[in-house]
Amino acid sequence: MESLSNKKKVLEQKPLNFMERMYLPAIMKGMGITISHLFKKEATIRYPEVEREFSTNFRGMHSLKRDENGKERCTACGLCALSCPAEAITMIAAERKPEEKDLYREEKYAATYEINMLRCIFCGLCEEACPKEAIYLDGPIVPADYLRKDFIYGKDKLVEAPLEMKK
């Protein structure tokens, strides 16, 4: 039948000629190629010691940010949880007491804030939704674990280290 795209190529298998039947020239050529790889730089990255750099738009583990005074930015508005397509985020809001003024920026804060890392798809919609610039997916790869309950990350794992500890 006529080819409509004109891309069809008819290949015919020719019998091998004498040099090809001897195998040796082809083998020599192949061995030349493999030996040339002996002198090439290896592509391996020795993982635990050396880590490959992430691309600039890599989205890793979440971190809850603090402001310049070391106060937690999150005000438990729930927009991140609302925007999350995987429903990985839950939180319980609480009212700030007067003596906690140095800890939280707004009058309302997240008493618990949990992200289920098994549900999370790392789409980054939570960081887009956040009006307070409190959550960013700028961490490393979420590590492996044995139990499902250990993948629910609370504030202990998510909140950035306090300012004085960072220094």
Binding site: T34, H37, K40, E42, R46
Partner: peptide, 11 residues
């Protein structure tokens, strides 16, 4: 095998 395939091999 590793060197011929641009790898490191057991190290």
């Amino acid at each position: 095998a590793a060197f011929l395939q641009d790898r490191l091999g057991p190290d």
